[in-house]
Design a binder for these strands. Structure first.
Lengths: 347, 347
DNA sequence: TTGAAAGCGCTAACAT
DNA sequence: ATGTTAGCGCTTTCAA
């Protein structure tokens, strides 16, 4: 019990009465090996419980390690869990192993993780950058040929591949859905730091939709909440305005659930709601929630495929892949504006 | 551009006019180094963008790699995402790196992942075993001192550390809640393969509660669904029985959401429901969902801490850590039995 | 305070 | 069909 030295290839070789290289050949199915020798070697391998040391192999082969590094802000968040799942599937299918770290949305932790991964000589790097992070320091790595793909949010201070949701278009479609049902005052509630890429883009999409409809952008209808409770409070605040919105558009999952809590808590079945991210029980709500669904697993898959194509030698210029969103219409976006509000007939 | 050889310690040494060992000393803050030498070395390190190669270091040191391997069935599942997040936090705080793989609930993939991790010489192994898996082959590793912790489900064919939810107790409490509100016919809907540990334990807890209340176990009230739709269908089937249940207990998240869909779709606000796993929007449902909440992040943390204590030399016998569940009472468990059903006064 | 040599476990490049 | 030698990038051991 307890920590006997692991058998090495040399042990196997000695025991089998062959040279180490022969063991290597057997294990890697390389050059020609006599059937008898092969069997003898495999028998010893089994008996000794020998496991090849991948680190040693990689080092000798000189190649980068057969791993890709992924940094996400938080694994507990189902969105990033799904992203990581997508990455893992692709990476694994290619025979690579996923090395994973959580930055807790902290630039310092993110950088430490990246440093660790680089020291491990990962074959590729995929990063969901935290809000405050800076990536200038990765320029040399990129120049040296390391594939680096940013996920969900673009890099700061670095031109690099990037995979994002169709945030702006998705928000525009969601808000347009509300406008198409007669709403003229639509509130916006965002949660993630206002400077964050997805939040900015979604807000832009909100404004795009208003502008297309010839409606003014009223700053009083824009609110922010840093968590579910804050988002709920923001929703209540908006609804308490002298000239309140008749519909809400929420910019992310926390804001959406916050708004749902606020509306259901207040019994306000008359306020329409459309929001980013499609939570599992959306269709069980009353009214059923109309949502802009993202495809996090698809984002992970796309990012991993992009990284692998770089690994395969694709040297074309950095590109941004946009993963479409999908408006899932279930009813909460079709409520009528509160009585008294202007209500043009749909064209 | 594109793939210049990475600078090695020897490059730094040559450039700085010192021996490799001196560079090593500077970088590891080891033996005594003259201040001037240190600065010269660090300058070259910065100029060349040198990054120590962790693989080489680990190999020489002979120690296991500074990684722990984690196998989960599916990262897209928020439960396992949270588990992985808990593991990562602890592992990272210890300076180790998480290596992650998804088995897709497949024994073969799981075994392949484990083999890869062993080849990488991970310092510890944590596994959420898939239903059909067998772990006899890990005996030698365990005997050799490798910490191995099983998560959510115990190992098969191997005595090893294990961290699980209080499945039986949680289910018992949930069902007792229904019984305390006058229900006498409680249906059980389970989803995961019936042989799976959590499913079995939760079913046992269901029977425990019935037995404590002196109620018969009616096999007709037990159903299985393999996904959300199937679970919903199972719920509808139970409610269509000649002598239908007045309440449902669901054994996992898919069964729970399936039951919610079925009940809300049928407008059956008279059927009580309590289920395992507390979904994000539980409180927004109508009626608000009473749920048995697990603590997946806590499970990950506990498992990682257990593994690390083994790494630190704890040689005590294998232990099972049970992470408590929490009954979150919100109302769906307190509905009255349908009219006509016997309804004894609560004691 | 620094350096030289040996070697971790493996495989590429040559033998044989 | 198999064995030998050298060396991947680093650290240990011993010496200066």
């Amino acid at each position: 019990m307890g920590g006997r030295r692991r058998p090495t290839m040399a042990d196997v070789a000695r025991e089998a009465g062959v040279a180490a290289k022969t063991v290597s050949r057997v294990l890697n199915g390389e050059g020609p090996v006599a059937a008898g020798t092969r069997e003898r070697v495999l028998a010893v391998v089994g008996r000794l419980g020998y496991r090849p040391n991948l680190m040693a192999r990689n080092m000798r082969v000189g190649a980068a390690d057969a791993t890709v590094g992924l940094v996400v802000p938080e694994l507990g968040n189902p969105f990033f869990g799904a992203v990581a799942g997508g990455v893992e599937r692709v990476v694994r299918a290619r025979g690579l192993t996923l090395v994973l770290g959580c930055s807790s949305e902290t630039a310092a932790l993110e950088q430490a993780l990246i440093a660790t991964f680089l020291a491990r000589r990962v074959s590729a790097l995929m990063i969901v950058p935290s809000a405050a992070a800076e990536h200038r320091h990765l320029r040399a790595e990129r120049a040296a040929g390391l594939p680096i793909v940013f996920l969900d949010r673009p890099a700061a201070g670095l031109t690099a591949d990037c995979v994002v949701s169709a945030n702006r278009q998705g928000a525009r479609t969601g808000v347009a859905h509300l406008l198409a049902h007669g709403h003229r005052r639509v509130g916006f509630i965002g949660d993630r730091p206002a400077g964050l890429h997805p939040r900015r883009e979604r807000f832009q999409g909100y404004r795009d939709a208003l502008e297309e409809a010839g409606l003014p952008a009223d700053r009083a209808l824009v609110a922010t909440g840093h968590d579910r409770e804050a988002a709920a409070a923001a929703a209540r605040r908006l609804l308490a305005l002298p000239d309140p919105p008749t519909a809400l558009f929420t910019g992310d999952d926390l804001a959406t659930t916050g708004a749902v809590v606020a509306l259901s808590g207040a019994g306000r079945r008359d306020v329409a709601l459309v929001g980013f991210d499609d939570p599992p029980l959306a269709e069980c709500l009353d009214p059923p929630l109309t949502a802009v669904a993202q495809d996090p697993a698809g984002m992970g898959v796309a990012a991993a495929e992009l990284a692998l194509s770089r690994l395969d030698g694709d040297r074309s210029r950095a590109r941004r892949t946009v993963i479409p969103t999908r408006l899932v219409v279930r009813g909460s976006g079709e409520l009528r504006p509160a009585p008294g509000a202007p209500r043009p007939a749909p064209s």
